[in-house]
Simulated assay, not measured.
Amino acid sequence: MTFPSHPSGSALRERMIEDMNVRGFTEDTRRDYIRCVKRFAAFIGRSPDAATAEDLRRFQVHQTESGMRPPGINSSVSALRFFFTVTLDRPDLSRRLAIVHQPRKLPLVLSAEEVARLLEAAPGPKYKAALGTAYGAGLRVSEVVALKVTDIDSARMLIRVEQGKGRKDRHAMLSPHLLELLRAWWREGKRRGVMLPRGWLFPGRNPVTPLSSRQLNRAVHAAAEAAEIRKRVTPHTLRHSFATHLLEQDIDIRVIQVLLGHAKLDTTALYARVATNTIRTVMSPLDRIKPLTQDETRPDR
């Protein structure tokens, strides 16, 4: 992949990749950033290092008018800011890019009964264990599929999550019931000959490669349909449900922050807005004052 029609296009691309490698960007991030810069270069019709502030303004107007949603626009902003600030050393241009702010929506959450139905309907023991891990440990889908057998520490009842979001290692909780699900899958996987020594906990079709996020997404959609759950369920819904259900059990929000691997408490605090059991148990100040309703035995005056 090269930036279009410019003799320095390939060199620019390689320089940007080197800059991203130095900063430890993941392969997915590198690919997305290159794609965004290539899209910008195609829009202006020349090498991106010849871009002007007006080009950036027109590009963002084009994105908005073409119906691109805020997350996509903001991803482009991140990629172009990196390209102009780091690779080209042109921070003056990066300041022309505007982040699109969007209201934070409440996450969709399943009830405990719906989670049980979903796991029961999972297509096989591997997917039941994988979805059980997303809910039982509150892991992101990318973290679930990246687990290896050696990441399960049954002695300490912990799951080691290597290089999660933000490229940080952390420990997640390993509940006794989740350990049972994982052991059931491990026995079945050994019987099938797909569990390699020190290999992936959830191997894909080829045991040397892990289950993909897309495969896990398809599995959760199939399970939700089989369980007759009408909500739009994704693997991340199980992580949302994990956090919300812990909050409803009066687990300290800072403990939940650590379990989820959130850098900011504000991110975790979003779940306080959907913890309906917590909301229902709070006494309204109205209930602490004298009832305002009239005594039905007294005639109206």
Results as ranks from 00 to 15, higher is better:
residue 28 D to A: 14
residue 28 D to N: 15
residue 29 T to V: 05
residue 30 R to Q: 15
residue 30 R to P: 00
residue 30 R to L: 11
residue 31 R to P: 02
residue 32 D to Y: 10
residue 32 D to Q: 15
residue 35 R to F: 10
residue 36 C to Y: 05
residue 38 K to G: 14
residue 39 R to E: 15
residue 40 F to V: 05
residue 40 F to D: 03
residue 42 A to L: 15
residue 43 F to E: 09
residue 44 I to G: 13
residue 47 S to K: 01
residue 48 P to M: 12
residue 49 D to L: 07
residue 49 D to H: 15
residue 53 A to G: 15
residue 53 A to N: 00
residue 54 E to G: 08
residue 55 D to M: 04
residue 55 D to L: 00
residue 55 D to N: 13
residue 56 L to H: 05
residue 57 R to Q: 13
residue 60 Q to R: 11
residue 60 Q to I: 02
residue 61 V to L: 14
residue 61 V to C: 00
residue 61 V to Y: 08
residue 65 E to M: 12
residue 66 S to C: 11
residue 67 G to N: 03
residue 71 P to I: 01
residue 71 P to W: 01
residue 73 I to K: 08
residue 74 N to G: 05
residue 74 N to R: 09
residue 75 S to V: 04
residue 77 V to R: 12
residue 77 V to K: 02
residue 78 S to T: 12
residue 79 A to Q: 03
residue 80 L to A: 00
residue 82 F to W: 09
residue 82 F to T: 05
residue 82 F to V: 00
residue 83 F to Q: 04
residue 83 F to W: 00
residue 84 F to P: 09
residue 86 V to Q: 15
residue 88 L to A: 05
residue 89 D to V: 11
residue 93 L to I: 03
residue 93 L to V: 07
residue 94 S to M: 01
residue 94 S to Y: 00
residue 95 R to K: 14
residue 95 R to E: 15
residue 95 R to A: 14
residue 95 R to M: 10
residue 98 A to I: 13
residue 98 A to D: 12
residue 99 I to V: 14
residue 99 I to F: 13
residue 103 P to I: 01
residue 104 R to A: 12
residue 105 K to E: 06
residue 106 L to Q: 04
residue 107 P to G: 12
residue 108 L to S: 14
residue 108 L to G: 15
residue 109 V to G: 01
residue 109 V to L: 00
residue 110 L to D: 04
residue 110 L to C: 06
residue 110 L to Y: 08
residue 110 L to I: 09
residue 110 L to H: 06
residue 111 S to V: 12
residue 113 E to T: 14
residue 114 E to W: 08
residue 118 L to K: 02
residue 118 L to E: 03
residue 120 E to T: 11
residue 123 P to E: 00
residue 123 P to Q: 00
residue 125 P to V: 13
residue 126 K to A: 12
residue 126 K to P: 08
residue 127 Y to R: 04
residue 128 K to C: 10
residue 129 A to G: 13
residue 130 A to G: 04
residue 135 Y to V: 09
residue 136 G to R: 09
residue 137 A to M: 01
residue 137 A to G: 10
residue 138 G to F: 07
residue 140 R to V: 00
residue 140 R to H: 05
residue 141 V to E: 10
residue 142 S to L: 06
residue 142 S to I: 07
residue 143 E to S: 06
residue 144 V to R: 04
residue 144 V to T: 05
residue 145 V to C: 00
residue 146 A to Q: 11
residue 146 A to I: 03
residue 147 L to W: 07
residue 147 L to Q: 06
residue 148 K to S: 07
residue 148 K to G: 09
residue 149 V to S: 10
residue 149 V to N: 09
residue 150 T to V: 10
residue 150 T to W: 08
residue 152 I to D: 07
residue 152 I to K: 02
residue 153 D to C: 09
residue 154 S to P: 06
residue 155 A to H: 11
residue 155 A to T: 10
residue 156 R to G: 01
residue 157 M to H: 09
residue 158 L to I: 06
residue 160 R to D: 09
residue 160 R to G: 06
residue 162 E to F: 10
residue 163 Q to P: 04
residue 166 G to P: 01
residue 168 K to Y: 04
